[in-house]
Simulated scan of single mutants.
Amino acid sequence: MSEIVDTRAGATKVLVVEDEFFIADELRRKLTAAGLRVLGPVSSNEHALDLLEQERPDVAVLDVHLGGARATPVAAKLRQLNIPFVLATASPAHELASDPVLADAVILEKPTDFGLLIETVRRVVK
């Protein structure tokens, strides 16, 4: 998936980490239409960590499962940088509770309600 960076000055920057192409594209389109600046989307921990080295988002939306890996390294880096994040995942909350990096994260279940996602992103960034 190629990286698309919206250059709207002053807009809240949202890092999108999602490995399913159609979901990632829909997230990008919905967030952009809501006036948010999307960084990515990226589909792996490596690409997300690389992007975090280049630009600092205000908030992130993470899928927990990225292919065969979990997004835990990205979540840990976001916590280190004090950047809030929202998990958009099909994983149940009790499954995530055992992971200290993900345990107290804001979780939105898939399929994603985009209106609720946008509202949640705006709420956690403030």
Results as ranks from 00 to 15, higher is better:
residue 2 S to A: 15
residue 3 E to A: 12
residue 4 I to R: 02
residue 4 I to G: 01
residue 6 D to K: 11
residue 8 R to M: 08
residue 9 A to W: 11
residue 10 G to I: 11
residue 13 K to W: 08
residue 15 L to H: 05
residue 19 D to C: 07
residue 20 E to Q: 13
residue 22 F to V: 01
residue 22 F to N: 00
residue 25 D to N: 08
residue 25 D to M: 11
residue 26 E to T: 15
residue 26 E to C: 06
residue 26 E to L: 13
residue 30 K to T: 13
residue 30 K to G: 10
residue 33 A to I: 09
residue 35 G to L: 09
residue 36 L to Q: 09
residue 37 R to P: 06
residue 41 P to A: 00
residue 43 S to M: 12
residue 43 S to K: 12
residue 44 S to G: 05
residue 48 A to C: 05
residue 48 A to P: 05
residue 51 L to P: 05
residue 52 L to W: 06
residue 54 Q to D: 13
residue 54 Q to H: 12
residue 55 E to F: 10
residue 59 V to I: 08
residue 60 A to R: 04
residue 60 A to P: 08
residue 61 V to M: 02
residue 64 V to S: 00
residue 64 V to I: 07
residue 64 V to D: 03
residue 67 G to W: 08
residue 69 A to C: 09
residue 69 A to G: 05
residue 75 A to P: 07
residue 75 A to I: 12
residue 80 Q to D: 15
residue 84 P to C: 05
residue 85 F to C: 05
residue 86 V to T: 10
residue 86 V to K: 04
residue 86 V to A: 04
residue 90 A to F: 02
residue 91 S to N: 14
residue 91 S to R: 14
residue 92 P to S: 14
residue 92 P to H: 15
residue 93 A to P: 11
residue 95 E to P: 05
residue 96 L to H: 00
residue 98 S to R: 14
residue 98 S to D: 14
residue 99 D to M: 13
residue 102 L to V: 01
residue 106 V to W: 06
residue 109 E to F: 06
residue 110 K to G: 00
residue 111 P to H: 01
residue 111 P to G: 00
residue 112 T to A: 04
residue 113 D to K: 06
residue 114 F to I: 09
residue 114 F to G: 01
residue 115 G to M: 12
residue 115 G to N: 15
residue 115 G to S: 13
residue 116 L to F: 12
residue 119 E to W: 11
residue 119 E to P: 07
residue 123 R to C: 09
residue 124 V to D: 06
residue 125 V to P: 02
